[in-house]
């Protein structure tokens, strides 16, 4: 028993990690076409519509403004520009939702291609990431509009959103790798993710503000809150707490290591399960 485990661990560090890395390296050499694939994959569903991909912006705007107006806690938090707060929160949460939701069907959805064309697996993860980034970019006008309405002033802290975005993308890569691989074997994962998405939306301070009491505890123990904070706060001109940075870094690193390990271990069997 112990010997077998030791053998497996040795196998992991000598062969599997190398295999996984090789897959990722190969995928990165196809980066250009992969990005194009993600791009065309986002645009094509809107091909026959009049408004086209601007529907993404439009849907986002409706969602942001309805929540921003209905849930506005007018007097209590006058120092927080609520519309901006909500718009950034929703757009970022949508990215995370894409990582968790589309990430868990990244391989199963492409089964037809995976079984017919020998390509590395990581390109399908890149495709999910590219789609999420395009969605994010399409929603940026909504955030800008909200900031203009709220008269938010930008200061030097604004630059901090870039390391924040990088951390978010690292977190996304890790979770996508993990979920895509696991969900190919255990098909329930996709539905678990769908079910938990609403729950996650409510326990994350997207449209409510972290204050004292229960809400503080919920927010504090929610890793997504910290990932949101390190981008949302600098965009609104305040410095996020060091504590949030540390949690975000740890959670991203953890996601990346777990995702990469699981992917490396199971990569050879992904096609067998499709």
């Amino acid at each position: 028993m112990f010997n077998r485990l030791r053998k497996k661990i040795k196998n992991f560090f000598t062969i599997k990690i190398y295999d996984g890395w090789e897959d990722i390296r190969e995928s990165l050499s196809l980066l250009k076409v992969t990005i194009w694939m993600g791009w065309i994959g986002t645009l094509l569903p809107f091909r026959d519509t009049k408004i086209g991909p601007y529907w993404i912006t439009f849907i986002c705007a409706i969602w942001v403004f309805s929540i921003g107006i209905i849930f506005n806690p007018n007097k209590a938090f006058e120092d927080v520009p609520f519309l901006t707060y909500v718009s950034i929160g929703i757009v970022l949460f949508d990215i995370i939702r894409a990582f968790l939701g589309e990430g868990s069907s990244a391989f199963t959805k492409e089964a037809n291609i995976i079984l017919n064309v020998p390509n590395p697996f990581f390109i399908y993860i890149i495709k999910v990431m590219v789609k999420a980034i395009i969605h994010f970019t399409m929603c940026l006008p909504v955030i800008i509009l909200a900031m203009i309405i709220d008269r938010v002033t930008i200061n030097l802290y604004f630059l901090l959103i870039f390391p924040g975005m990088i951390l978010l993308l690292i977190f996304g890569t890790g979770t996508c790798l993990f979920l895509a691989t696991i969900a190919t074997r255990y098909r329930d994962i996709r539905f678990v993710m769908q079910a938990s998405m609403r729950f996650l939306f409510f326990v994350t301070p997207v449209f409510w503000i972290k204050s004292s009491g229960v809400r503080e505890i919920i927010a504090e123990f929610n890793p997504i809150y910290h990932l949101l904070t390190i981008i949302r706060e600098p965009a609104m001109g305040t410095m996020p707490s060091l504590h949030s940075y540390i949690v975000s870094m740890l959670i991203s690193l953890f996601a990346l290591i777990i995702g990469f390990s699981i992917f490396s271990i199971m990569r050879n069997r992904i096609a067998h399960w499709l």
């Binding site: 196809l30 076409v33 992969t34 194009w36 694939m37 065309i40 094509l44 569903p45 091909r47 026959d48 037809n112 291609i113 017919n116 064309v117 390509n119």
Partner: peptide, 20 residues
């Protein structure tokens, strides 16, 4: 493989070329 009904012939060719 990878033919998408909404894409044009050219886009689908590009897509297939990317896959291959």
């Amino acid at each position: 493989i990878g033919l998408n009904m909404h894409g044009t012939g050219i886009e689908n060719t590009r897509y297939a070329c990317a896959l291959y």
